[in-house]
Computed example of a mutant assay.
Amino acid sequence: MRAPALKLTGHLAAQFTAKDGVTQLRTHHQSYPLKLAKPFRLGQDEQLAVYMMDASPGVLAGDRYELSWSFGEQTSVLVTNQSYTKVHPARTSPEAPLYPSAQCVSLVLETGAYVEYMPEPLMLYKDAVLLGETEVTMAAGSHLFWSEIVCPGRHQRGELFQYDTYRNAMDVTYDGELIYSARQLVRPGLRAPQRIGSWDRYTHQGTLLLFSDKADGQLSTLLREWLAEQYGDTSGVYWGVSHTYKHGVIVSVLGMRVLDVEPVLTSAWHWLRQELFGKAPLKLAK
C-alpha cells in the first residue's frame, strides 16, 4: 500500500539579479527546515556562492521539498549545500504504508546567466522512497552546470540498494525548445541495479551536465579525450561522455565510492569551466 506525500515540509525560493556586473541575492524566502546561508564571493571572481541548509536530520517520510531559483540577466551564481541529502525510510513503522518523499527543483535562467548547481551526494536509506523532479527553463545565451551523485545506502550499516524507490525526472527547455528530457526509475526490490545492462558491479552513480550554446559535438570529443588521459587506466570507475540533442554535454560515471566518482566529475567540471568560460578551478569549503 502506498500513500501520497503528506505535506509541503520545506520551501525555498531565491531571486538573483546583476547590476554593473555584480550579482546579488535580490529576494528570498524560506520555510523550516530549509534556509540559505549568507552569500559570499568566490575569490577574485564576481561569482556569488550560496549554500542551502537543512536543519532537519534529512528528508523524512512524507516530506515534500520545493526549491525555486530565478537567475536574472548576466548573473553568475554557484549553488551548493552543506552536506549529503539524506532520505530516511518511507515507513514510520514496519506495518505502516509507504509515505513517499519528494523533492521538486525549478531553475529559471535569463539571458547571459551563468549558474553552477552542484549539490552534495544523495543518500538513500533503507526503505527510502524519493520522487525527484527538476524543471529548467533557459533563455538563449544562458549557461548551466548541474551535478548529481546517488549513493545506494549506508555501507557501515550494511545497506546496499535496500531503498524502495528512486524516481527522477528532468526537463530542460532552451530558448523555448525542449532540448533534454530524462527519466530514471530504480526499484531494487523488483530489478537489481547491479547487473549487466544496468550498473554492472558498481554501486554509485554520478552525472555532470552542461547546457550552453558553447556545448557541441566537438566539445564532447575533446572532453572525452582529456578524461581518457586522466582516467583511462583507472579501474575503480566506468565513465563516458556524450552530446545531447542540442546545447548539452553529459558526463556519466559509475564507481564503488563517492571518493571514486566525485574526482572524475570535478575534473570534467573544472576543465569545462576553464576551456569555455576562462574560470579557474574551484575548491569549496564544506
Rank of each mutant, 00 (worst) to 15 (best):
K7H: 11
T9E: 04
Q24C: 04
R26K: 00
R26I: 00
T27A: 10
H29Y: 12
H29N: 11
H29A: 12
F40R: 12
G43Q: 05
M53Q: 14
M53K: 03
D54N: 15
D54F: 01
S56T: 05
G58H: 08
V59W: 02
V59Q: 11
A61E: 05
A61D: 06
G62M: 00
R64N: 02
R64M: 13
E66R: 15
G72I: 07
G72P: 06
T75R: 04
V77E: 08
T85E: 14
A90S: 15
S101Q: 02
S101K: 02
Q103P: 06
Y117F: 15
P121A: 14
L122V: 06
K126W: 05
D127F: 04
L131T: 10
E133R: 14
E148C: 09
I149Y: 02
P152L: 01
H155W: 01
Q156C: 08
R157D: 08
G158M: 10
G158I: 12
E159T: 09
L160Q: 11
D164G: 08
Y166C: 03
E177S: 13
S181L: 00
L190H: 10
L190K: 15
Q194F: 04
I196S: 00
S198N: 10
A215S: 05
D216A: 00
L219N: 05
L227G: 09
D233L: 12
T234L: 07
G236P: 04
W239L: 15
K246Q: 10
K246N: 02
V249E: 10
V253G: 00
V258M: 09
L259S: 15
A268K: 06
A268D: 07
W271L: 15
W271D: 02
L272E: 00
R273A: 11
E275D: 06
E275S: 05
G278K: 07
K279A: 13
P281E: 11
L282W: 09
L282V: 08
K283Y: 11
A285N: 09
A285C: 03
